[in-house]
Amino acid sequence: MALIEIDDLHVSVADREILKGVSLAIDAGTTHAIMGPNGTGKSTLSNVIAGREGYDVTKGSITFNGKNLFDMAADERARAGIFLAFQYPVEIPGVSTSAFLKTAINARRRAAGEPEIDAMEFLKLVKSKTKALGIPDDMIKRPLNVGFSGGEKKRAEVLQMSLLEPRFAVLDETDSGLDIDALKVVADGVNALRDKERAFLVITHYQRLLNYIVPDFVHVLSGGRIVASGGKELAAKLEAEGYAQFQSAA
């Protein structure tokens, strides 16, 4: 059984249908990429997986680890192992990054029946991850995402991902706003988490990120449907030939 199974998903926003029957099965241990032109429903798909409100699922289902995802609120999904790396991480003034991280880690631990993390263990854990991601120590003392540069925000997303150790992570345009060095750091952070138990869905407009996070499967989302699927070579083809062929098909 696939870790996550999206079946004939139809989603409307304000009575406009954005996703028009998306089906996708992702096995544990695999990385899928969804590519596509702007405005085609890529972010809608990631928000619906993560459980954001304001999206009407008019038809179809998403099953995660055998459970109906739509029975769970956003926080329950996260505690069950779903993670969304945001395209635009939200700034939260007044809430320090470290206090937030600790609260999030403990929420997941409590759900798993594990004891809460103590202060020393927390600091050690965070330090081991920030070092690999090139995150300066003072960043976690600052208010969450406030005044972070584009690159810092994306690194902070990957930091959260490595601390929360999700089963299934969606990376929504994680490459946007990153220079090549930051892109490599972020990709290394993601690759370090890849293993037999986990799955990833990388959503991107450009092929560039897929040179560093090499997917097992690539899908083209256009006009609210998956119009083509293939291996990693499909990404290169898209980069060379563009999306026009699929847009006319859709």
Partner: peptide, 27 residues
């Protein structure tokens, strides 16, 4: 948007609201 962000990290809605409210005033 802030509430969703915190919830998407596994924080329950009451705790998330509490963090945001405290952050707002304490900020």
């Amino acid at each position: 948007g802030q509430l969703f962000y915190l919830m998407s990290r596994g924080i329950d809605p009451d705790t998330a609201r509490g963090l945001l409210i405290a952050g707002f005033v304490e900020g």
